[in-house]
């Protein structure tokens, strides 16, 4: 078997550059965040973000993409369309300056330096009586 390994190792050019599916990573993380914050069976998601728009069509049940933040359980947006919604809905702003500017937002989810960054406001969680799993504690501001 060891000999076989050497032969395979020799004839197959091993590609050290790892294949990384960014769209899949984005979709998985949105589903993960949604599952933490939305407890309904059908989880309605609104996306209006330059960075995340490309994955809108990739969700399946129980995740459903809706047309407006109003109709959604959770929103991922670049800009805040209405301050009222900010207080009512669970809104993740998809850039850091937006997160800094809107203190009422639940959190922020954006991509920086090739890696995802999640930030969650403790105050917003407490006021909405949302219980975070242990793995999400590190994202609390």
């Amino acid at each position: 078997m060891a000999i076989l390994k050497y032969i395979i190792g020799f004839f197959i050019v091993v590609n050290i550059s790892y294949a990384y599916d960014l769209s899949l990573a984005k979709k998985n993380l949105i589903e993960n965040i949604t599952s933490v914050f939305v407890k309904d069976n059908l989880k309605k998601i609104y996306i209006n973000s330059y960075f995340f728009n490309d994955i809108k069509n990739s969700f399946n049940y129980p995740y459903k993409i809706v047309e407006s933040c109003q109709k959604a359980d959770i929103c991922f947006v670049d800009k805040i369309e209405s301050k009222k919604l900010l207080k009512e809905k669970i809104i993740f702003i998809t850039n850091y300056p937006g997160f800094l500017n809107h203190k009422d937002g639940v959190g922020s989810f954006f991509w920086q330096k090739g890696r995802p960054t999640i930030l969650i406001r403790k105050k917003a969680i407490t006021s909405r009586d949302i219980h975070l799993p242990k793995s999400y504690k590190k994202f609390l501001e």
Partner: peptide
Amino acid sequence: KERAFLNQPFIPEKE
């Protein structure tokens, strides 16, 4: 485009 803000939290993926 990728630059972080001063004192922006860095959340490591492998703590």
